[in-house]
Simulated scan of single mutants.
Amino acid sequence: MGHDDLPPLELAFPGPERDRGVAAILSGHKTALTGLLEIYEHAGEAVPAAGQRFAVLDSDGRPAVTIEVVEVRVVPMKEIDDDFARAEGRGYADAAQWRAAHEEFFRSEGVSGFLGHTPVVDDDTLVVAERFRVVGTGSP
């Protein structure tokens, strides 16, 4: 199965943030990612399931790496721990740093524009916490 047969996965928004995320996956530093459950619901997308594969797109919309989801949990933000925060591969020292960065992103203009409002982000906000492994890189 090539990249073209896989659903696309876009980290953040095109630009430096996405480029850093893709680079962190390719380097092996990023083995987890988090999404706001409200975004999945608004987009009418199902929460990913273990075993599902995705083509992670770069900022130009090209497949950069193929990942396979190995674990998915829908949990309140307060349940994200230091280990998961570090697995995000963004240099977070602990869950507090992860939380601050994700609160800022989830309240960003891009997310608010997509949802049509600024989401409530607090301890009980549900996030989709995924762990994954790389199963292929580059174009098929």
Rank of each mutant, 00 (worst) to 15 (best):
L126K: 03
G35L: 01
V56Y: 01
L26E: 12
Y40K: 02
P76Y: 14
A85C: 10
V56W: 05
A23E: 15
S108E: 05
T31D: 12
H42Q: 09
P48W: 02
I25Q: 01
G116V: 05
A87E: 13
F106L: 08
R133C: 00
Q97G: 10
G28M: 08
A12M: 11
V128M: 11
E109T: 10
V121M: 02
V65L: 06
F132V: 05
P48V: 06
L33M: 14
T137G: 04
A24T: 08
V127S: 02
D60R: 15
L36N: 00
E45R: 10
T34Y: 01
T125Y: 00
L11F: 15
T31C: 13
F84H: 08
F106I: 09
H42C: 01
V135A: 11
P8E: 07
E10K: 07
T137P: 02
G138S: 08
F54V: 02
A93V: 12
I80Y: 05
V111C: 04
A87H: 06
E104C: 03
G91L: 03
A49C: 03
V22S: 02
R18Y: 09
D58L: 00
A93H: 12
Y40I: 02
T66M: 09
S27L: 10
E104I: 10
F106T: 00
A96Q: 13
T137L: 04
E109P: 02
T125K: 00
S59P: 09
V128L: 10
R86G: 12
P48S: 06
L126A: 14
L37G: 06
A85K: 02
